[in-house]
């Protein structure tokens, strides 16, 4: 464990908590893409199956349980409790175009052809594009509430910090996983446009307006 990875995990946790609090306090999931949240739940489910039979550390186990519980909790709030406030008209990204290629790629490019490894690889590929429905929805609605942009900033920062973690581990000549690194770079690049707008607009108190 290193400071970059710890900050990355905490940024990830912060993002999820910001989202849960936003939905819970405002009792509304307006502006939030249920499809992206659905993809994140798939990512965590496919990746954390080893939860039940490999123990890496207490931290690892606790965080996996928290991520699984909060992602399903978010789905519950969006699709059941506050379903009336879900903006399905603007949440229209075709997620089958993300899931199917991720499955195909995981079957073609992986470290080991075992069920667990293929599922892990699938979750890595899917996570790299899971935010697209949310970014698409923000561009369709043309704007995002500031709390939503804080959520996106924390979520985008998590994988950017993981890239610093991989650089740090490379200097320590620790074992690295090329699949996770390439996917993590793609994932972070998808946020660049948003990062620019967040840093130049939201932090100056302006509303986040994405060019439609």
């Amino acid at each position: 464990m290193n400071i970059f990875r710890l900050l990355g995990d905490l940024s990830h946790l912060l993002a999820i908590i910001i989202l849960l609090l936003k939905i819970w306090n405002s009792r509304s999931c307006a502006g939030i893409s249920g499809r992206s949240q659905f993809l994140f739940a798939i990512v965590f489910t496919a990746r954390y199956l080893d939860l039940f039979f490999t123990f890496i550390s207490l931290y690892n186990t606790v965080m996996k349980i928290v991520f699984l519980a909060t992602s399903y909790g978010t789905l519950y709030l969006m699709y059941i409790k506050f379903k009336a406030t879900y903006d399905s008209n603007h949440d229209t990204f075709r997620i089958e175009f993300l899931i199917l290629p991720a499955i195909a790629l995981a079957l073609l490019i992986n470290e080991e052809f075992t069920v667990i490894e293929i599922l892990w690889t699938f979750s890595i590929y899917l996570e790299s594009v899971a935010i697209l429905p949310q970014l698409f929805m923000v561009s369709k609605t043309g704007e995002a509430e500031s709390i939503t942009s804080h959520y996106l900033f924390a979520l985008g920062s998590y994988r950017a910090l993981y890239i610093l973690n991989w650089i740090y581990r490379w200097f320590l000549t620790e074992k690295l996983n090329a699949i996770a690194i390439v996917a993590g770079i793609v994932q972070t690049i998808l946020y660049c446009d948003f990062f620019y707008l967040y840093l130049t607009k939201v932090l100056k108190g302006k509303k986040l307006q994405l060019p439609a």
């Binding site: 990875r5 080893d50 690892n60 991520f67 080991e112 490894e117 996983n177 996770a180």
Partner: peptide, 10 residues
């Protein structure tokens, strides 16, 4: 035989 992939990262 690739080393058993132990994914220690979240």
């Amino acid at each position: 035989e690739p080393a058993e992939e132990d994914h220690d990262e979240l």
